[in-house]
């Protein structure tokens, strides 16, 4: 078959359309997140002090942080799914969540006596956090990788890492509702370590699964 013939075949196939990117992202992420949320409410559940904590700025900051991670990771992954698209603001936005966390740690350093710093950083549930944040990120990560496969990422490693960052944000949002530790110090160590594990997995998985 020569190139002119190939073009004839492609034109004949013009009516068969793939799912639009935004829709496949929305559907696959929703499915992945629902799976993790089902696991969360079945086995972990809200912490006892959840409703009493709703006016505690430390508790609320956890969700600002995790939601920022999820939103910025999603925006970047969607951008990276399109060949030739400039990452621009979306590329810089992934630094927003870490920057917020650094600022919050600064406030914590200024307002909490030095002898409590270490205890707040170690918290009560560090190992839990380190296992559950990566575990509950798996389903949203799978959904996002599927959505990226429908796209055409020209930098598969980076796209996988962005997807993993978003998945960690979604997973950490769930985990934060159960976790008793609210200090930014705890987030900076354990949430970030959990996220780093997921991002490494996403980077590797992206390189293997996102070729097209």
């Amino acid at each position: 078959m020569n190139t002119d013939d190939l073009i004839a075949a492609l034109a004949a196939d013009n009516d068969t359309k793939a799912t639009p990117l935004r829709r496949s992202f929305a559907v696959d992420v929703a499915l992945g997140f629902t799976a993790s949320a089902a696991f969360f409410f079945a086995f972990l559940g809200l912490r006892k002090t959840f409703f009493a904590s709703l006016d505690d700025p430390r508790f609320l900051f956890k969700f600002v942080f995790t939601a920022t991670m999820a939103a910025s990771g999603l925006a970047l992954a969607l951008r990276l799914a399109r060949p030739g698209a400039e990452t621009g603001a979306a590329g810089r936005a992934v630094w927003l969540a870490p920057a917020l966390l650094v600022a919050a740690c600064g406030v914590e350093l200024a307002t909490v006596p030095a002898d409590q710093w270490f205890a707040r950083m170690i918290g009560q549930n560090a190992i839990h956090c380190l296992i559950l944040v990566p575990f509950m990120a798996l389903a949203p990560l799978a959904g996002l990788l599927l959505a990226l496969r429908n796209g055409a990422p020209t930098d598969p490693h980076r796209a996988g890492a962005a997807a993993a960052f978003a998945a960690s944000g979604l997973s950490a949002t769930l985990y934060a509702m159960s976790c008793p530790d609210d200090s930014p110090f705890f987030l900076a160590v354990w949430y970030m370590l959990g996220t780093a594990i997921v991002v490494a997995v996403g980077w590797l998985a992206g390189g293997r699964l996102l070729r097209w």
């Binding site: 190939l6 492609l10 990117l21 698209a85 796209g151 055409a152 020209t154 097209w212």
Partner: peptide, 24 residues
């Protein structure tokens, strides 16, 4: 050409086509 065809839904129609083609 095959890749352009199978991935044409990833082009953002508010952008120009040339950078998208070049990247593919």
């Amino acid at each position: 050409l095959l890749a352009i065809h199978l991935k044409r839904h990833t082009w953002d129609s508010s952008q120009s086509l040339t950078p998208w083609i070049a990247a593919i």
